[in-house]
């Protein structure tokens, strides 16, 4: 099984949202990282064949996905970034409706709906109308609908948005287990989620993949460049202006900064074990990453 992205480009008027990106995805979890406007959502919509690329194509097992039509959508699960729903439907009604749209026979759909409701902790909520749900509850329904047809290609745009820490862990485990023989692509702003489950990470900036590799490979890129320094609180702001600061905490009258720098930033700087967060910030600086 292979999902190939071949020189995929999307321009909206004069603005290039996705700029000639290529990749070959096989079974596993792929994390897509990037600031707002980096092109992640546009790329995902093209992967789902709901947005027409300006150039390039997406191929599934060698065939152009858009041309496959129903056959491609049959193996696809998609959670859009702003997950739309029907407020007057209950969870069970909504999932049954989406199951019908996915061509799942009614007798199988009922079992699958129950299974996903259990998996995503929605048992207590199954009979409630969606309009009464919080953002996190609705997000879980969105994830359930994406997984209804047991898709070979699961594309999740910001699946962790609105989930509490416990639900995030539950979803991470679920996706990691699910991705055994399937392709899961997820985008998120929460680097630790990608770090926890992604086999491969793509960092996007200005519509391009600026870096990609395993979490370990990306972290290794910043090996020897991550430091912890302790400075007086009054100097913390000056340090933030001079250097990429990955984190900042107070210890009494002192500020402890985790910084990324090519050279040891001060005499007292202590080298640290790099993380994906550090690699992400290193790729295009704190200001761009947090934009």
């Amino acid at each position: 099984m292979e999902l190939a992205i071949d020189r995929l480009t999307k321009r909206f008027g004069g603005k290039t949202a996705v700029d000639c990106v290529s990749a070959s995805l096989t079974a596993g979890v792929y994390g897509l990282l990037g600031a707002n406007g980096a092109g992640k959502t546009t790329l995902m919509r093209m992967l789902c064949a709901i947005l027409k690329p300006t150039a390039g194509e997406v191929r599934f097992n060698g065939r152009e996905a858009a041309a496959m039509g129903e056959a491609y959508r049959d193996v696809l699960g998609y959670l859009p970034q702003d997950f739309g729903y029907y407020p007057t439907y209950t969870v069970a009604e909504f999932l049954s409706y989406i199951a019908a749209l996915k061509g799942i026979p009614r007798d199988r759909a009922a079992g699958r709906v129950r299974e996903l409701v259990d998996m995503l902790g929605l048992q207590e909520l199954a009979g409630r109308k969606l309009r009464t749900f919080s953002g996190g509850m609705r997000q879980r329904v969105g994830i359930a609908q994406a997984m209804l047809n047991d898709p070979q290609v699961l594309i999740l745009d910001e699946p962790m948005a609105g989930l509490d820490p416990k639900e995030r862990v539950r979803l991470r485990n679920l996706l990691a287990e699910y991705a055994g023989d399937k392709i899961v692509v997820l985008s998120t702003h929460i680097v630790s989620d990608v770090e926890a489950i992604a086999d491969q990470v793509f960092v996007m900036n200005a519509g391009r993949f600026v870096v990609h590799g395993t979490v370990l490979e990306l972290a290794r890129r910043v090996g020897g460049k991550v430091w912890e320094i302790t400075v007086p609180r009054a100097q913390a702001r000056q340090w933030q202006e001079r250097i990429t600061v990955a984190s900042y905490r107070h210890e009494g009258e002192q500020a402890v900064l985790r910084v990324i720098a090519e050279e040891r930033p001060s005499e007292g700087a202590v080298p640290c074990e790099p993380t994906l967060d550090d690699a992400y910030l290193y790729s295009f600086g704190a200001s761009e990453a947090g934009r």
Partner: peptide
Amino acid sequence: SGTAPLLHAAKYG
């Protein structure tokens, strides 16, 4: 309502 992308990505959508 934002459901169009969801429907368009479904097999019979």
